Amino acid sequence: MPDFIDCPCAGGTLDRLIQPAVPIVLAEGTIHGYPLAARVRERFSLGGQKPDMSGIYRFLKVMEERGLVASSWDLAHRGPARRRYAITPDGLRCLAQWVETLQRYRDGINDLLGAARIAVKKQAETAEAPRS
Rank of each mutant, 00 (worst) to 15 (best):
M1L: 13
F4K: 07
I5S: 11
D6T: 12
P8F: 10
P8Y: 09
C9Y: 04
C9L: 11
A10Y: 05
A10E: 05
A10I: 01
G12S: 00
G12I: 01
T13A: 15
D15E: 12
R16T: 14
I18C: 09
I18R: 03
I18P: 02
I18M: 11
Q19P: 03
Q19T: 10
Q19I: 11
P20K: 04
P20E: 06
V22M: 07
P23L: 10
P23V: 10
I24R: 12
V25Q: 06
G29Q: 01
T30E: 11
T30W: 00
H32Y: 00
G33I: 03
G33E: 02
G33A: 05
Y34N: 07
P35G: 06
P35H: 01
R39L: 14
E42F: 06
E42R: 11
R43D: 15
R43H: 11
R43A: 15
F44C: 10
F44V: 11
S45Q: 13
L46T: 06
L46F: 07
L46S: 06
G47D: 02
Q49R: 11
Q49K: 06
K50N: 09
S54V: 14
I56S: 07
I56Y: 09
I56K: 08
R58C: 06
R58A: 13
R58Q: 12
F59E: 15
K61Q: 15
M63R: 00
E65G: 09
E65S: 08
R66W: 13
R66Q: 14
L68A: 15
V69S: 06
V69C: 05
V69I: 07
S71D: 12
W73Y: 09
D74L: 01
A76R: 08
A76G: 09
H77P: 01
R78G: 09
G79M: 01
G79E: 01
P80T: 05
A81T: 02
R83V: 05
R84S: 09
Y85T: 01
I87T: 02
I87E: 03
I87D: 04
T88S: 13
P89D: 15
D90G: 11
D90K: 10
G91E: 10
G91F: 07
L92I: 15
L92C: 11
R93W: 03
R93Y: 04
C94I: 02
L95S: 14
Q97Y: 07
V99I: 14
E100I: 13
R106T: 14
R106E: 13
R106S: 12
D107K: 08
D107E: 13
G108V: 01
G108Q: 11
N110F: 07
N110H: 08
N110Y: 03
D111Y: 10
D111T: 13
A116K: 03
I118M: 01
I118W: 00
A119Q: 05
V120Q: 08
V120Y: 15
K121L: 12
K122A: 09
A127Y: 10
E128W: 09
A129C: 04
P130M: 09
R131S: 14
S132I: 07
